[in-house]
Design a protein around this nucleic acid. Structure first.
Length: 272
DNA sequence: ATTCCATGATCAG
DNA sequence: TGATCCTGGAATC
């Protein structure tokens, strides 16, 4: 379930088990076999995340570039690794641990310049210390595109996905259909700051929680929310349920081929 | 047994 | 805007 926090967490998880170790790499499913041969028995020298992109460094051999897409999953475990199933695109294994990757959009061996090109086309990532939120602001404030669409554009800001988008707009009571150029600077600053905190917590907990303690259903005298996506949220996939704050029915609409969720009471909109 | 759907992204037209 | 790729679990028949 990959938004940026997941990818940063995976970079940590890979590092914890494999960094500095010689690893066996293989591609049981086959699509990565040639490259897996090149990294086999090499030492993992670095792991890194930028937005939803994950990089595993193998010294001079290059980097394995992984993008999970919508379906990709990683499974970590202790040795002995079970026989791989036929969908495992990449397995890393040592005498003590293994990691299986399946379903990624991207799994490719790339060079350092190729890796740099990926960084160059991504916007600032709230989870990276080198991030410059002003780069995102410069594009947002010039754009007629809705803020909801801009937040999902990885060239503008890297790592935000459909959950963080919906939730951060709710937390700042912003109309998702507001054109970027109409977003006040103060609102952008608050959104960025909030994303830094929310996504850091996401890495720590390995899930997305956005509901403030005082707004939790229990604190409001309501039964706990039951949902399968794992965290406590205000609007994401809560269509037709009542807003934790104002009681309005949460709405949904399709925007740029993704489901958008918002509260018409807390985020009044002119767009739809 | 089959269809649908998802926290993503690219490419053609 | 629509088709397409990747996988697996839930919903539906």
């Amino acid at each position: 379930m990959p938004e940026g926090h997941t990818i940063h967490r995976l970079a940590q998880d890979y590092a914890a088990r494999f960094l500095g170790h010689q690893v066996r790499t293989s591609s049981p499913q086959g699509k990565f076999s040639d490259s897996a041969t090149l990294t086999d028995r090499q030492t993992l020298t670095a792991t890194e995340a930028h937005g939803k992109h994950l990089f595993l460094g193998f010294g001079d051999t290059g980097w394995i570039h992984i993008h999970l897409g919508l379906f990709g999953k990683l499974g970590f475990g202790d040795a002995p690794a079970p026989p791989p199933t036929d969908t495992v695109r990449l397995r890393l294994a040592t005498a003590t641990a293994y990691a299986d990757l399946r379903g990624p959009t991207t799994c490719a061996l790339i060079t350092t310049p190729e890796k740099q090109a990926i960084h160059d086309r991504l916007g600032p990532d709230p989870l990276r210390p080198d991030a410059d939120p002003d780069r995102a602001w410069q594009r947002i404030t010039r754009s007629r595109t809705t803020i909801a669409a801009l937040l999902l554009d990885q060239k503008i800001i890297a790592g935000v996905g459909n959950v963080y988008r919906a939730e951060v707009l709710f937390r700042h009571h912003i109309d998702p259909y507001l054109p970027g150029r109409d977003l006040p600077r103060t609102a952008w600053d608050a959104i960025w700051q909030d994303l830094v905190l929310l996504m850091r917590e996401g890495v720590r907990n390995n899930r997305i929680d956005t509901v403030r303690p005082e707004h939790m259903p229990e604190a409001m005298g309501r039964p706990p929310r039951v949902d399968d996506h794992g965290g406590e949220v205000y609007v994401y996939r809560r269509t037709h349920q009542h807003c934790h704050l104002c009681g309005s029915e949460i709405r949904t609409a399709e925007l740029a081929a993704r489901n958008l969720f918002w509260c018409p009471g807390c985020q009044p909109t002119n767009g739809a």
